[in-house]
Structures are given as C-alpha cells and as structure tokens.
C-alpha cells in the first residue's frame, strides 16, 4: 500500500481507489487527476461519540471524505506539511493541524493534561489553549500542518521534554503528559517571561514541535 508521497515541503500526493479512502481538511485539495469525489463529513470516521467529543472540545475543523479513483494533491494555506506513518500505534494531534489521513485509521478525542488532575485542566483553560486532541490509531498515513516545519524530539525516561503548548503539534508513543508551570514563575503570570505554562511529556516516544508559537 503506497503511503502519501511528499511533493515538496508544502504539498503531498495521495492515491485514492476502492478500499483506499481519505479524510481531509475541507478546502485542502490543490489538484486531482481522475474521478475523485469530495463530500463533507461531520464524524470524520470517529463515529458519533468522537464527533461529540470534537464538538465539546471546540474543535470544529470541517473535514471531507475523499473517494473515487485517482490521485489527489493536498496542501493548505502555504503551511508546511509533514507525513507521519503509523504502524499500529497512536498519534495524538490537534484537529486543526490535520491535513489528510487514511480513512483506515481509527479516530477519537482525548484531553491533554488530564494526568495532571483538575489543576491541569484549569490551567489549560487559563492559558486559552484548546488542548483537546484528536487520536488516530492503526496502520496508515497522516499528514500534519505546521508553521515553519516541525522537528522531532525523542522522549526517553531519562529525558522528559517540555513544550510550549502553542508550539506543540503532535506526539506518539507511550507518553504521559501534564501541564506544568515553570519553576518559580507562577507568581509572574500576566507579566512573566511568556513561558509560564508548559506541556511536560515523559515516557518513551516522540513529540513533534513547530518553529513557531502561531496557532493555525
């Protein structure tokens, strides 16, 4: 099964055929060859529960189902595109970062920072970050959007990684996450260094970070 093939840093190409359907962000099709159909979808393969979760999470990025026979090129708003291949594991990604993914992947929703307990939740709301993320599980490809490209940082038990919530794009692996305040900075909220809240990721896995604090 051929995966998504990158055309350049901002465009990719994906085949569509019987048994190979895609979910993509609406308006992200750049061009296509063959007979390809685009229809709006609310659930994006997540089922009603997932759709509700997405709605509760305030993630209203409209998706469409791509079917037919042909080749489709995707890209969005001149943003950088990164392809991530999943082999049975789970990718955690913010919904507004999703460009396109194989319909064979199982989609769901979870809340980042929930291991941090209630304090984590409240802090998430204080920072105004939509830290609900979409989960994609199974075998297939995912393409994510970023502002300025992403770097992959390995997470190991010896080396947890702290990420600015606004620069966080996605992560995978057996990773615990919690929102933390930087040492000694809680009293500086509002006039601080700008780094008062961080997403702490520990365990074994990979986190994808973009070169920008800009949300999409």
């Amino acid at each position: 099964m051929p995966a998504f093939s990158p055309i350049n840093s901002k465009m990719l190409q994906a085949p569509v055929g019987p048994g190979r359907e895609l979910y993509s962000r609406r308006g992200a099709m750049l061009a296509y060859v063959g007979q390809v159909y685009f229809e709006p979808t609310v659930t994006a393969g997540a089922g009603i529960g997932g759709a509700l979760g997405r709605a509760m999470a305030g993630e209203h990025v409209p998706m469409m189902r791509v079917t037919g026979q042909g080749t489709v090129m995707f890209g969005y708003g001149g943003l950088d595109v990164t392809v991530i291949d999943l082999q049975g594991d789970t990718l955690y990604v913010e919904a507004d970062r999703l460009l396109v993914h194989d319909a064979s992947l199982q989609s769901g929703t979870m809340f980042l920072g929930e291991q941090g307990g209630l304090a984590g939740v409240i802090r998430g709301q204080v920072t105004g970050q939509g830290l609900f993320t979409t989960t994609l599980t199974g075998h297939g490809s995912v393409a994510v959007l970023s502002h300025g490209g992403v770097i992959e940082l390995p997470i190991t038990p010896q080396r947890p990684v702290h990420v600015d919530p606004q620069a966080y794009v996605a992560h995978r692996g057996n990773v615990q996450n919690r929102l933390s305040t930087s040492l000694g900075l809680r009293d500086l909220i509002g006039r601080g260094s700008g780094e008062a809240f961080q997403l702490e990721l520990s365990g074994q896995g990979t986190v994808y970070v973009q070169a920008s604090e800009k949300k999409i």
Binding site: I7, N8, S9, K10, M11, M29, L30, A31, Y32, V33, M73, G75, G78
Partner: peptide
C-alpha cells in the same frame, strides 16, 4: 510561488 513550484501535465483539475 508559495513553496516550490510543482509542474504537472494535463489532464488535471486544479484548485
């Protein structure tokens, strides 16, 4: 161009 230019040959439908 926004990103590198990509050349394609017809037939193709482009946004």
């Amino acid at each position: 161009s926004n990103g590198p230019v990509h050349f394609v040959e017809p037939p193709v439908r482009v946004d």
